[in-house]
Nucleic acid binder design. Structure first.
Length: 426
RNA sequence: GGAGAGAUGGCCGAGUGGUCGAAGGCGCUCGCCUGCUAAGCGAGUGUGGGGUUAAAAGCCCCACCGAGGGUUCGAAUCCCUCUCUCUCCGCCA
């Protein structure tokens, strides 16, 4: 959410941002509602001030045992008027709130202008794509051959877009989680969080999944709870309605969680394999920073996520999302895309974003500078570090051998009891 | 799931219809005093919104005593619903 006063005073900036994003939102509606709101608000407040004055007089009279019938009559009339104004006001206010909730963040000046995904800008290439002496297999074939991924039984026990990891597959998933957590905690200085995987509506409003993206979420029937689509939600909301201390910033958290996504509207995309699942694991990085340091911290966050791929020896590239592809609440986003040999393409494995104060305003996360009177909103950032399932895809495909086995990257071996490769069970 | 108790400012805690944004204490900030980083004295110390302003400060006004609704001329105080916390019982990894 953006600051209503900022919007009011910078309507041209808003219009330009919406145009760059190719978003169609009625800005004039806002201006009309806002003008109405302020007019009614000041009328109402004048009435209230009048009422408060008369009330004081009445209480004086009453305490001296004098008659206040006339004043009470006047007050009755004022109260009736105030009540109806109040109703009108709250209607307008909720309309304004709805409008503001629909308004996306303003892209940062450094974000390239573009219409869609095709105009994202590659800013970095890392690693060498593996050269195979045979046609590389897709990860689902490798996984089934090695009996580490079981799609059939997952479909039986749950449904499509679910998978069962078995044996070394399950161990690999667990190893990756531990490896990434250890890296970010011990080397990058993040604090580990193990959050609830279920959250309430307020949290989802705070991080801007609601109200716009309800159809992407799993809701628990009969409860007010939702399954989290990412650990970003519980971790960012850790400090909802809090005032942080300047000296504690930046706060850096890393959290493992399962993530649940309805994937509505993605029928037919990535139907095979584990690229797109209803449930997947992810290690997420979240930062709370001062406004002036958030872009520096974004670069740091990106580097922390990249290091995972570097240590695993997986080739990747980094792209800056253009304005047309930028997520709703983000001011700037880097995607890290890992090389997937069977598809001969790079696939997103991490998305690192600076939300500036967009989430902080919704979630009311502030900080106070030393000696300052006023609280300010923090900036929030987050990024995957990394998506576990897609990392498994990358490992299986990039490290596959001609005989169908898969070499384990060295850094993972201590997490897998020292084994060097996954082979077909005898 | 059943029964009961509670939710007030950074913290503790008073306040059962009118002068309450809220006593008192603690903490914190500033000042004074004191021949030691103590004690004492004085003042200040919530958040959000609207107006005034080029802007800020300041000033004026409004709202907020877990949340939402209601009664009333008037609600922290009365009524209803919800949420959370605590105690006991039941169930349970």
């Amino acid at each position: 959410m953006l600051d209503i006063r900022f919007v009011r005073k910078n309507i041209d900036v808003i219009k330009e941002a919406l145009e760059k994003r190719r978003a169609d939102i009625d800005v004039d509606l806002f201006l009309r509602l806002d003008a109405q709101r302020r007019k009614i608000l000041s009328e109402l407040e004048q009435l209230n001030a009048q009422r408060n004055k008369l009330n004081t007089e009445i209480s004086h009279l009453k305490r001296h045992g004098e008659d206040a019938t006339g004043l009470i009559q006047t007050l009755k009339e004022i109260s009736v008027k105030a009540k109806s104004l109040d109703e009108t006001l709250s209607q307008i206010q909720s309309q304004i709130q709805d409008w503001l909730m629909q308004l996306p963040n303003i892209p940062h000046a450094s974000v390239p202008v573009g219409k869609d995904e095709s105009e994202n800008v590659v800013v970095k290439m890392w690693g060498e794509k593996p050269a195979f002496s045979f046609p590389p297999k897709p990860h689902w074939e490798i996984g089934e051959f090695l009996k580490i991924l079981d799609f059939k039984r997952a479909a039986k026990i749950t449904g499509s877009r679910f998978v069962v990891y078995r044996g070394l597959g399950a161990a690999l998933e667990r190893a990756l989680i531990n490896f990434m957590l250890d890296l970010h905690v011990k080397r990058h200085g993040y604090t580990e969080i193990f959050p609830p995987f279920v959250v309430n509506e307020e949290s989802l409003f705070g991080t801007a999944q609601l109200p716009k993206f309800k159809e992407d979420l799993f809701k628990i029937e009969g409860e007010k709870y939702y399954l989290i689509p990412t650990a970003e939600v519980p971790v960012t909301n850790l400090h909802r309605d809090e005032v942080l201390k300047e000296e504690d910033l930046p706060l850096k958290y890393v959290a493992y969680s399962a993530c649940f996504r309805a994937e509505a509207g993605s029928y037919g995309r990535d139907v095979r394999g584990i690229i797109r699942q209803h449930q997947f694991n992810k290690v997420e990085l979240v930062k709370f920073t001062t406004p002036e340091s958030s872009y520096e911290e974004l670069e740091g966050l990106l580097a922390d996520a990249e290091e995972v791929l570097q240590m695993l020896g997986l080739p990747y590239r980094v792209v800056t999302l253009c304005t047309g592809d930028l997520g709703f609440g983000a001011a700037k986003t880097y995607d890290i895309e890992v090389w997937v040999p069977s598809q001969e393409t790079y696939r997103e494995i991490s998305s690192c974003s600076n939300y500036e104060a967009f989430q902080a305003r919704r979630a009311n996360i502030r900080f106070r500078r030393k000696g300052a009177k006023k609280n300010e909103l923090v900036h929030t950032l987050n990024g995957s570090g990394l998506a576990i399932g897609r990392t498994v895809v990358a490992i299986l495909e990039n490290y596959q051998q001609k005989d169908g086995s898969v070499i384990i990257p060295e850094v993972l071996r201590p997490y897998l009891g020292g084994i060097e490769k996954i082979e077909a069970a005898a």
